[in-house]
Simulated assay, not measured.
Amino acid sequence: MLRRLYDWTMSLAARKSAEVWLAVIAFVESSVFLVPADVLFLPMALAKPERSYRYALVATIASVLGGIAGWTLGYYAYDAVARPVLEFYGKLDAFEHLRLYIHDEWEILLLLLVTSGFAHLPPIKIVTILAGVIHMNLWFFVVSAIIARGARFLVLAWLLRRYGEPIRHFIEKRLGQIAAVIAAILIALGLAYKLLAP
């Protein structure tokens, strides 16, 4: 099923309505969809590099709005809607594991800015729903989401404009790993600070 979703999403990049589909995919990725918006964003930005920053803006706005939808599901409809969605994608265990350890907004911010924003670890929908479940301040969440998602799409747009097709393989294979390592270091530093702080 995942492969079919991926292939279908890739096919949208060639359509005249690709920009609309980018907004739709970025929106639902942040709340209920499994395939990241990068799958559509990368071929679109490569095909029309002069529009890459425009695409980054579209993806950022839609992703933040989708994040608000995820937050709303977590805040108001976790048992009725969000939990079945997480179960459907096999992400409920990962969500519940995070829920045990995440108790304040700064930990959510760290996850959102670094791991989900740049490396999709955990998937952004888990973080947005969790932010709603723990009743994270909505405005704080929105600002965090703008920084996280905006930075990701703008960095991707810059890389694609500067280096073109050769950088695509690096982005697809290595960028997530590098971001995950940086995220792990930052999380470890945050936990160490929390444990050692008086």
Rank of each mutant, 00 (worst) to 15 (best):
E96G: 04
F118V: 03
A119T: 05
L111Q: 09
S63G: 15
A80C: 01
H97K: 12
P123I: 10
S116M: 03
G67R: 03
I61W: 08
E96S: 11
L112T: 05
T72M: 09
W106E: 08
L109V: 13
S63F: 05
G90E: 10
A119I: 03
G67D: 05
T128G: 07
L92I: 15
P123R: 11
A94H: 10
P84S: 12
V114H: 03
K91M: 15
V127M: 05
E105H: 04
A62M: 09
I124H: 12
F88G: 02
F118H: 09
H103R: 11
S116P: 05
D93S: 15
F95T: 10
S116I: 04
G66A: 06
Y101A: 10
T72E: 03
R99H: 14
A82Q: 12
Y76E: 07
F88R: 12
L92K: 11
H97D: 11
V81F: 13
G90L: 11
V64Y: 00
L112K: 01
D79V: 03
Y75A: 14
I102E: 00
Y78V: 12
A119H: 05
L111W: 15
H103L: 02
Y101D: 11
L109D: 00
L121S: 06
E105G: 07
F88S: 08
T115A: 15
L98G: 11
R99I: 01
V81M: 13
L92C: 03
W106T: 09
L109A: 14
V64I: 06
E107N: 02
A69W: 08
H103A: 07
L86Q: 01
H120L: 08
L113I: 13
G117R: 06
D79G: 09
L92P: 02
L109P: 01
G70T: 07
L111A: 14
L111K: 02
V114K: 02
L110Y: 02
